[in-house]
Amino acid sequence: MKRVLITGAAGFLGSHLCDRFIKDGYYVIGMDNLITGDLKNIEHLFHLKQFEFHHHDVCNFVHVSGELDYILHFASPASPIDYLKIPIQTLKVSSVGTLNLLGLAKKKNARILVASTSEIYGDPLVHPQNEEYYGNVSSIGPRGVYDEAKRFMESLTMAYHRYHGVDTRIVRIFNTYGPRMRLNDGRVVPAFMGQALRGEDITVFGDGSQTRSFCYIDDQVEGIYRLLMSDYSNPINIGNPHETTILEFAQEIIKLTGTQQKIIFEPLPQDDPLQRQPDITKAKEILGWEPKIDRTEGLKIVYDYFKSLSPEELQKKEHRNFTSKA
């Protein structure tokens, strides 16, 4: 039985990756400091003999007994609300944390995949964004703690690949949605659905003309899995190229939920990208991957998931435990 370490295992993406590797017969070691993750996302795995969980911060020395075949580094705040509240932890997990995990991969002779982001492209001057585009990022803006952390992660990963010969993969993840997302975490899908389900007006930042491209979680996990199993070490975009404006998306959510909310407009946050659409040519050619799940189908699944939450959970605002030392 091959063994895989997944960091950020109690998070949205990490927990779905745990499910996928368990399903495929791997022994999964999940690791999370729970600063933004939630054990509820993986509690269904605790009774399995092929799963173990370590409550640990990867910014500290990481030790795993026995052999390791793969490491997937998904430990990082991913929502604006989180990384603006914990900027130093955000910077550290993609720098110090990545350094620790690359060292572990070198020691164990394991293949490591690190989770980068479309945010490394910043507010892009090239559209759609391909992997050769270097980006348009403010290093000192409020979003820089996330954007630059991921850019450094990529540089560090490639340095270990070139200098130490570590077997590395880099995935650039575009907007992903699905069950287990947190309501009110600042990302578009749960924010709009939460407002609709609570009967609140839908908040659109700017005039709503900015664009996003939404990929359903099952498609995202399949793309990540194929990249891990490939022989390609340079970054690859994994996302859905079907672009929509935020205003159109808000109207789509109102239609889906059958609610009658108004759309209200607030100022656009600093450095918020105006366009986001992946060029997935490399994913198609190298991995044979492209998204299969239509947004209408995926949003219905997510809507049913959020509808199943208790009234208390729907009304709960985000109060995360950000007491960990930076």
Rank of each mutant, 00 (worst) to 15 (best):
F12I: 10
S15E: 11
L299P: 00
I280D: 13
T117D: 06
E285Y: 05
M153V: 07
G122R: 07
K106P: 01
I202S: 02
K300W: 02
Q261T: 06
F61H: 15
I246K: 07
H56I: 00
V4R: 04
K107R: 08
G194D: 02
K292S: 12
F46K: 10
K307D: 00
R169K: 15
L101A: 01
V145P: 03
G103S: 12
G298E: 11
G14W: 09
I42P: 07
F12L: 09
N109T: 11
T259D: 01
V58H: 08
P179H: 02
S76H: 01
S76Q: 03
D231V: 06
S94V: 11
Q129N: 06
P267F: 10
E200V: 01
R20Y: 13
K40E: 11
A10P: 00
S79L: 13
M181S: 06
Q315C: 04
S308E: 02
A115E: 12
L309H: 12
K150S: 15
R172L: 14
R226F: 04
H242L: 15
E52G: 07
E248V: 00
I263Q: 07
G103L: 14
F265C: 02
G135R: 09
G206T: 09
I263V: 13
T323N: 11
Y305S: 10
S233M: 03
G194Y: 02
G97R: 02
L17K: 11
V126S: 12
K108G: 13
L247V: 08
H164P: 04
K317S: 14
L227P: 03
H47W: 02
I202M: 05
E285L: 15
F249Y: 15
I280H: 07
E297C: 00
T281L: 05
K255A: 15
I173A: 13
H54D: 00
S233Q: 09
P124D: 10
Y305W: 13
E297L: 01
C18G: 03
A196W: 10
F12G: 05
V137P: 03
G298C: 13
N136W: 04
A75W: 08
I112H: 08
D207L: 04
